[in-house]
């Protein structure tokens, strides 16, 4: 019981990270119908920018307290957003109107470019960071087993919920959100209604990248080790989460992320840590076979 509760806490905080990345996949898919395979690497960039920000602040002796963490988060979001914008501008926009596979291939290329760029500029070695947020709250005790809800996990869950709340308001209540929804449902018609579709698509990439940056920062704080390759696995799992939740559905992406986080955590705890990735990818295969529209996805039935 206590053990399961601990796994639940771990699973949710991991799932939040996947969910944040999954939102970026699903947004881009919704608006231009492509899978941005470089999105996992954008998450990796976010983690690296956060690390650099932490090191700079430590150098200046200012890496202290929640304000410093907030500063790191904002710096990572801003710089990573710029990467997202550039990616779309350089690698995807010129291919719009080309055949469907073209941007997909370009995305795979950009994924390799980003990985190699970080590998060369930052070095291939694993980057460790000593924990910035220590300690936690003892939730319950069962004999020698203590259920811990660490402050980092609280931070992850709190920040993710806050970011997702702001994001939801943005999509449902602002002109930009309405433009995004219009573009998502009919790009051509949106343009006929005076919406600058290129700008809306750019901003979608910017928002997706900054959410991935939040995930990257949280990942860095929680695990304390990153390298240029973390984007691949996290990216594929977040993609799985997006597919499980129903690609194109924003709540689905968050739900899918939570489920993948929980499945992976419980699988590791009760069956085998070595096979945790197999569990996640089996879910992807099963979803694609039996539930291709995902949990909250919609059937593509439209009246003609």
């Amino acid at each position: 019981m206590a053990y399961a509760l601990q796994q639940l806490i771990n699973g949710i905080s991991l799932g939040m990270i996947y969910g944040l990345i999954a939102v970026g996949y699903t947004m881009v898919y919704g608006i231009i119908g492509m899978i941005n395979f470089a999105h996992g690497d954008v998450f990796m960039i976010g983690a690296f920018v956060a690390l650099i920000a932490v090191l700079l602040l430590q150098l200046g002796g200012a890496m202290d307290g929640p304000a410093a963490i907030l500063l790191v988060l904002l710096a990572s979001m801003a710089v990573t957003a710029l990467y997202g914008w550039t990616l779309e501008r350089l690698a995807y926009r010129p291919l719009r109107g080309s055949f469907r596979l073209a941007p997909l291939i370009s995305a795979i290329g950009m994924s390799i470019v980003l990985q190699n760029y970080v590998q060369i500029s930052q070095g291939a070695r694993v980057k460790p960071l000593e924990p910035l947020v220590r300690g936690g709250v003892e939730v319950m005790r069962d004999g020698p087993f203590v259920v811990q809800f660490s402050y980092v996990q609280m931070l992850i869950i709190g920040v993710t919920l806050a970011v997702l709340a702001v994001f939801t308001l943005l999509v449902t209540r602002t002109p930009l959100g309405r433009a995004m929804r219009a573009c998502e449902q009919d790009l051509k018609m949106a343009a006929l209604l005076g919406i600058d579709t290129n700008r809306t698509i750019s901003l979608t990439f910017v928002i997706g990248a900054s959410l991935a940056a939040v995930a990257g920062t949280m990942y860095l704080l929680r695990y304390g080790v990153i390298d240029f390759y973390i984007g691949f696995l996290a990216g594929v799992k977040a993609f799985t989460a997006a597919v499980l939740g129903g690609i194109g559905s924003l709540p689905g992406a968050v739900l899918g992320g939570l489920l993948i986080g929980l499945i992976e955590t419980f699988w590791s705890a009760y069956f085998s840590v070595q096979y945790k990735d197999v569990a996640a990818f089996s879910i992807l295969a099963l979803t694609l076979i039996f539930l291709p529209t995902g949990l909250l996805g919609r059937q593509e039935v439209e009246k003609v």
Partner: peptide, 12 residues
């Protein structure tokens, strides 16, 4: 323009 096929936003 009210275009060919009407292009109503189906989920609005």
């Amino acid at each position: 323009q009210a275009p060919e096929g009407r292009r109503i936003f189906p989920r609005m």
